[in-house]
């Protein structure tokens, strides 16, 4: 069986959709089809990939308008007549074909104050319990596919990249702030530099996350609450600081 594809070809200056037909094999994913096109029709078709199993977050594209991992999108998700459109992520500048320049994300990551652990109690091992690490383990599943960044309207439509680090880095911040061993305080920066106020909880990021991380409910909202406590309810914050666990609020 053959299937028809429309693939965006071009670079930063110009580009257009081109049509390709691919013979299907059992169990194929969209990335397999793109690879067939590379071999048979367009050796130079640019696409990123590595693991082919949803683990590395390289192959992010927009398939029929939805931000997705090409390696985890099965061909049998589409009806037989449907033409499958593949284009690069819109939020980031195109380098070539399906490859975008995601370096902005790496710059955001670098701005985040690093992990700062407390001293080990016995000098050898840190003690942390499973129930205390579980919630940050959820955030640490992130494969940095940047699909959430791609879909977030603050970055995508309003292009406020200088004001908001985006959902990916909000959960990275959450994973540091909620880390049982961490003693740094990033709350003022989360409000002032990283733009927690820009998010208006539409949950679009959570919807596209291939790791099913509850970005908004488990990550962003709790951070917003901490910001509110700190800046608008300082008494509670000081109380927590004195009687809570260390410098962190629970």
């Amino acid at each position: 069986m053959e299937r028809n594809f429309k693939i965006w070809r071009g670079d930063a200056e110009k580009g257009e959709f081109k049509n390709y037909a691919v013979k299907l094999e059992q169990g194929m994913v969209v990335l397999d089809a793109i690879h067939r096109i590379q071999v048979e029709h367009a050796n130079d078709l640019a696409v990123r990939w590595n693991c082919k199993a949803g683990k590395c977050g390289s192959c992010s594209v927009e398939i029929n308008g939805r931000p997705k991992l090409a390696c985890m999108t099965r061909m049998n998700e589409f009806s037989p007549e449907e033409v499958i459109t593949v284009q690069p992520m819109k939020t980031f500048p195109v380098i070539k074909d399906l490859v975008t320049d995601v370096s902005w994300n790496y710059e955001q990551n670098k701005m985040i104050p690093p992990f700062k652990p407390r001293k080990k109690k016995n000098g050898i091992d840190h003690v942390m319990y499973q129930q205390d690490v579980e919630r940050i383990q959820e955030f640490r599943k992130c494969i940095e596919c940047y699909l959430c960044q791609d879909v977030c309207h603050v970055l995508r439509d309003q292009d406020k990249k200088e004001k908001f680090v985006g959902p990916r880095f909000m959960i990275r911040l959450a994973s540091l702030e909620m880390h049982p061993l961490d003693i740094d305080d990033r709350i003022p920066k989360i409000k002032n530099d990283f733009g927690s106020g820009m998010c208006n909880i539409t949950r679009c990021c959570t919807d596209v996350c291939p790791e099913h991380i509850q970005i908004t409910d488990n990550g962003i909202i709790p951070l917003k609450e901490r910001v509110v406590d700190r800046f608008y309810d300082p008494v509670r914050w000081i109380y927590n600081k004195l009687f809570g666990n260390g410098a962190k609020q629970e």
């Binding site: 590379q38 050796n43 130079d44 696409v47 490859v99």
Partner: peptide, 12 residues
């Protein structure tokens, strides 16, 4: 042999 330019060219 690789077609086209050297810019992000997986064939090359």
């Amino acid at each position: 042999f690789a077609h086209a330019s050297a810019q992000y060219n997986p064939g090359w």
